[in-house]
Design a protein around this nucleic acid. Structure first.
Lengths: 350, 350
DNA sequence: ATGAAAGCGCTAACAT
DNA sequence: ATGTTAGCGCTTTCAT
């Protein structure tokens, strides 16, 4: 029956000042420089603050030029556990600095990436951690031109004055390819997502290097097949056909990530093909559960949580006065499990 | 050698006005009510807009009372694919309205939830989609008291004037438990994450109902064991011991989610125990890959992407003038696979 | 059709 | 130690 004790509209410093019988300046000082205000006054103001449930207006602070607590983070695909875990690493680190993350997923759409970047600029984020489709794109250049700190996520800096955290994709691609070649595979389906992602391109380059190192011709060894974007990962049929329904069928799939590899394995199973008996499958990322599927997936381990934390670290470092742009490079690690084996293991499928 | 073509500091409407030889009001009109301004003037202003790469200042707009384009979204654990997919559903829907999401993960920490809620208020989000640990918490009540639209994610509304999107956890819990009971299990380890999550509590209640419906005593049938928070999911040993190293060992694990179930299965395997030969394991969520592990996981399917979209829908509906708070209820579905079987199947492990 | 000016909530510089 | 005030960038009356 009583009046609502808390005001419905958030109270302003004005309201607090009135309630405590002081000026707005004093309220501001209680908020930001408590030591400047006498104990008694401070107590009165604090009481008013509490009783109205005052909440700072971030927009007003920002308009005064104070740094925003929001950091933008744009990843390629949040439904990929790999990025979700990176995001957690980022978030944990930001939280330590009282920042929050504006997390967006471009879903591998260029247009969407550009749109998000625009909105992030409008809200004047403190910086952005960017997993970009286009390391030479205008969105990124815009950010840089406006002096917004940028940390690239697993993408080359292409000469831009930004920081980056990357993993050695060349080495990773080389490692899986070398593994497959060593097992004797000479026809390998190179599975991509139909969209050219910088890090994946590097892995492919690495894979080609491995082939060249053996004196073979990459164009002979690899056959490019596409799974289509993640949304289509449920229908691996066409990709499988492209690789196998061929006079000279592939004996192995080198997949651009674990999710895709799993999808391929599922499709293979549905067709009655055994892995690795009939065809080998290698993934990339080493997601948490890849050791539990059957057969356990051969893949390449990449850092996730630590990767995210490193990115956030770099972003804060960017904030410092005269900072050198740095690139932190992580090293991937081949994890050989059961899904790859020499070709021609044959018809022993159960 | 040339001057940088784009200003480093983002240009303001003032700058544009000056450049185009008009007043700020006109610039604002070009931006928001283009039809009110003469074609010629408009063209001049638009040229200036483009040449400086003008970006609105969201803070200033907001200060004028315009609605924010930012929607807060707080989930329990982003490293759980279940939430990551929900987040994607939310994001997709928001994007359609030109909004972006401030995605945070409380990591099941109450303190962190409260902190995030505070920051979200400071930035005056347009609303918040909240997966809360505490549906009766002060953070949530605060939001409501301030008329900030709230949509609860899989949590009871407890009488608060908010919307909610939920799944029938009672039914879900009942279904798995009934399945296990029907197979003959009479000693079941009820695995939780050590933290009381509302939705999980409901599932447990549902499971107990199933036991009662058979005229059995839930306290006899269930033995509570804890895996600890997600971060500890890597060490399922203690939970396994608690369930099995007992004069009357459990014959099945009813796990609070798939990630936990996988972790338990891994631990079981390390101890040389066969699933489901020696012990059955049931999960919850039906994450994308649970059908691919060995043995394929028996679990309960929950909507994810659609769940997220529904939440975002509700949030926008909240914005409408005089809106009725609604609750959207999804129905879970038991998915029986290979990881559960009648007890005593025995030592046939290979 | 356009311009002038007030004011959103806050901080910081200055005045008392 | 506290009060006063200008101004951040924008939208929106109200004049012209």
């Amino acid at each position: 029956m009583e009046e609502q004790p808390r005001t419905r509209r958030p109270s302003s410093v004005q309201d607090i000042a009135r309630a405590a019988g002081v000026s707005v300046g004093t309220v501001s000082n209680v908020l930001n420089n408590p030591h400047l205000v006498a104990a008694g006054t401070r107590a009165r103001v604090e009481a008013a603050l509490r009783s109205t449930g005052f909440v700072r207006n971030a927009a007003a602070r920002q308009l005064k030029g104070l740094p925003s607590a929001i950091v933008g983070c744009l990843v390629l695909d949040l439904s990929n556990l790999f990025f979700a875990e990176i995001a957690r690493g980022i978030e944990d680190r930001l939280e330590e600095e009282g920042c929050i993350v504006n997390l967006c997923s471009s879903d591998l759409k260029r247009e969407r990436e550009e749109q998000y970047l625009r909105v992030l600029q409008e809200v004047r984020v403190r910086g952005v951690i960017l997993g970009t489709l286009d390391p030479a794109g205008s969105g990124l250049r815009d950010l840089v031109a406006r002096d917004i700190p940028v940390v690239l996520l697993d993408a080359p800096r292409s000469g831009l004055p930004v920081c980056a955290v990357t993993v050695d994709n060349l080495a990773g691609g080389r490692a899986v390819a070398e593994h497959l070649l060593a097992q004797g595979h000479r026809r390998i389906a190179l599975l991509d997502g139909g969209i050219l992602v910088p890090s994946v391109s590097d892995r492919i380059t690495g894979a080609r290097q491995a082939v060249l190192a053996r004196g073979l011709d990459p164009d002979q060894v690899f056959r490019k097949v596409s799974l289509g974007p993640p949304a289509h990962a449920g229908t691996p049929g066409p990709a499988i056909d492209a690789a196998l329904a061929h006079p000279d069928p592939c004996t192995a799939f080198l997949c651009y990530n674990d999710m895709a590899a799993l999808s391929i394995m599922l499709g293979l199973r549905e067709r009655g093909l055994a892995v690795p008996g009939d065809v080998s499958v290698a993934g990339y990322d080493d997601l948490r559960f890849t050791s539990m599927v059957t057969p356990a997936l051969t893949t390449v381990r990449q850092p996730t949580y630590e990767f995210g934390r490193a990115a956030a670290d770099l972003l804060f470092a960017e904030g410092e006065p005269d900072h050198e742009h740095r690139e932190v490079l992580f090293t991937p690690e081949l994890v050989v499990r059961e899904s790859t084996a020499p070709p021609g293991g044959g018809r022993r499928s159960r």
